[in-house]
Design a binder for these strands. Structure first.
Length: 368
DNA sequence: CGGGTTTGACCTGCGC
DNA sequence: GCGCAGGTCAAACCCG
């Protein structure tokens, strides 16, 4: 055991050393680029649960226009279609989504997904903005690389069994105790039968050389752990704003070190301390990978459909699902990714990915 | 000096 | 019950 621990530590240290240069790149980049997510209020469903995430996906697949190097998670936003029209690259993410909503209030990708219930849900799928209180309890956004270029995809999922109203209320109350929970955590033993409540989570997979993706919030690192089967450690960050319990984890894919998996957990209770609203525009990817490709994979209920759907870059969001009741105010084009959603190598990841990628997605893409 | 990072130790949940 | 791995704490350290 001690040996293993020491191994982990040494591995951790090694990887840290190896990435020191990248850190330097990050700092430089952060200083030279203004990639802000305006007023990025990260709103996720207020209720919590550690109920397993409800998977199934649709995908938004885009290719970012390469510019300069940034480390924003939103680098991936301006993009073209992957495997499809490679010409629509000038559209920003919002343009692609054809969203006329006021992001000054919704203000972030997270908000948008949450309020539009893009997150997988057993409820009537609707993109009508809804109060956070009605949102699915758990959401995860997983970015999914589809090309060697800078890539990202988003997946989200909702809770399944036990996701009833009473539990939501209960979870809401528990969220109020979140702050206290931090201090209690080590002092007060949890009740045996009481699973630890988890915040809704969004996971981003971005192809980037830098680990810390700027999302407009300030984060303090509070831990780092070696990840099993991965030479790269996982870093834990917490929002520095007082009372804000949002956390994020950052790790690299062991199979593709260029891919950074960022998982956000929780809900910001404050506006972005850094970014002015006007800078909501997503920056083109500039992580040095040339034409950047992004692909957003958003889980939907597993039982409903198992395919990843490609998001069309046409100005009007056309999204179609083949076997779900998913009926947003805009439709999806039935352009399945068929394996683009997540590389098998990534889906085998036993680290964070395993936690956030629906089990069916982790299997090899099934041709039809 | 304040705020952020590092890192060893500890806690917790889960599978066997 | 035990071991493992993920997650968190907090003292020490670093840096502007």
């Amino acid at each position: 055991m001690n040996e293993m621990k020491q191994n982990n530590i040494s591995v951790c240290k090694d990887s840290m050393e190896k990435r020191e240069e990248k850190k330097e790149v990050t700092r430089t980049t952060l200083k030279t680029e203004n990639f802000n997510m305006a007023n990025s209020t990260f709103i996720t469903p207020p209720t919590t649960s550690d109920i397993d995430l409800m998977p199934s996906f649709f995908a938004l697949s885009t290719t970012a226009t390469p510019t300069t190097t940034t480390s924003s998670i939103f680098d991936m936003m301006p993009c073209d279609i992957v495997g499809g029209d490679q010409k629509a690259g000038s559209l920003g993410f919002m343009d692609l989504l054809d969203i006329n909503q006021d992001f000054g209030t919704t203000s972030s990708l997270f908000d948008w997904f949450s309020q539009n219930q893009i997150v997988g849900s057993q409820q009537q799928q609707s993109f009508i903005p809804s109060p956070a209180s009605t949102l699915p309890e758990t959401s995860e956004v997983l970015n999914n690389p589809t090309t060697p270029n800078s890539s990202a995809s988003i997946s989200s999922s909702s809770n399944e069994a036990g996701n009833d109203g009473s539990q939501q209320v209960k979870a809401g109350d528990q969220e109020e105790e979140q702050d206290q929970d931090k201090t209690k955590k080590q002092l007060k033993p949890k009740k045996k039968n009481q699973k630890r409540q988890r915040e809704p989570r969004f996971a981003f997979m971005t192809k980037s050389e830098v680990d810390q993706l700027d999302d407009g919030y300030r984060w303090r690192k509070y831990g780092q752990k070696a990840v099993k089967n991965s030479p790269y450690p996982r870093s834990y960050y917490r929002c520095t704003s007082a009372g804000c319990g949002v956390k994020k984890r950052v790790e690299r894919s062991s199979d593709d070190p260029s891919i950074v998996v960022t998982t956000y957990e929780g809900q910001h209770i404050h506006p972005s301390p850094i970014t002015p609203r006007a800078s909501i525009g997503f920056m083109a990817d500039s992580s040095g990978f040339g034409a950047a490709t992004s692909s957003f994979v958003i889980p939907q209920p597993q039982y409903q459909q198992q395919h990843a759907y490609m998001y069309s870059s046409s100005p009007s969001l056309n999204i179609t699902t083949s076997s779900t009741s998913f009926s947003p105010s805009f439709s999806f084009q039935d352009r399945r990714l068929d394996g683009q959603a997540l590389p098998a190598s990534l889906l085998r990841d036993h680290g964070l990915l395993q936690d956030i990628v629906p089990s069916q997605m982790r299997k090899e893409p099934k041709e039809e």
